[in-house]
């Protein structure tokens, strides 16, 4: 039991990084990780000892993320009232970001959650296509098209933001 918890503990930095890429805001990302850990503890028996907990934990977290995204979509515009914008803005003061980091993180948040998850899983977390497809519960072909579209979308958004920056318009 404690061995399992120690193994899970060592995965927390990666889970936090993945959550941060999905949600950007530090507290929100840690909330997602905490939800993931709590669910993992309830299902500790589902995890085969000897196997790395990484894929298992990422799968749990991804399900939590996608479930919530679907709820947000069902609630539709109600969830997109400016009320929430203020919460996302409230980044802790110690989070120092360069312009480049801020732009790429903003752009990442603007692409669809499915594409964001697929792209980050492979490009940042280093999972193979087979592993990522398994975690996300989609066929490999779907994963690949999400990655390709995600990269293309990201590039377009970054081009837009550098164009904006070049005429010194937007201050965030």
């Amino acid at each position: 039991m404690d061995d399992k918890k120690a193994a899970i503990l060592s995965e927390i930095p990666r889970l936090r990084r993945y959550a941060r890429s999905l949600l950007r805001d530090r507290d929100s990302a840690d909330d997602l990780v905490q939800d993931c850990l709590e669910r993992a503890l309830v299902r500790l028996d589902n995890w085969q000892t000897g196997e790395s907990p990484r894929r298992w934990l990422f799968t749990i977290m991804h399900h939590l993320f996608i479930d919530q995204m679907r709820k947000v979509n069902r609630r539709g515009e109600a969830a997109m009232l400016p009320l929430e914008a203020g919460e996302a803005q409230a980044a802790p003061a110690d989070q120092v970001e360069t312009i480049a980091s801020r732009e790429i993180m903003d752009a990442l948040q603007a692409i669809s959650p499915d594409r964001r998850a697929a792209l980050v899983m492979v490009a940042i977390e280093g999972f193979s296509y087979a592993e990522a497809a398994n975690i996300l519960g989609v066929p490999a072909g779907t994963l690949m098209s999400r990655i390709a579209r995600g990269r293309e979308e990201l590039r377009g958004l970054l081009d837009d933001s550098s164009r904006r920056r070049s005429i010194r318009i937007v201050e965030k």
């Binding site: 929100s28 990302a29 909330d31 969830a79 997109m80 929430e84 914008a85 919460e87 996302a88």
Partner: peptide, 21 residues
């Protein structure tokens, strides 16, 4: 805590705000 997902929804609003600016 179950409100973490709101920040994801908010990203949409921020994107719109940025364009407005």
């Amino acid at each position: 805590r179950s409100r973490w997902w709101l920040s994801a929804a908010a990203a949409v609003v921020l994107a719109v705000g940025g364009l407005g600016g």
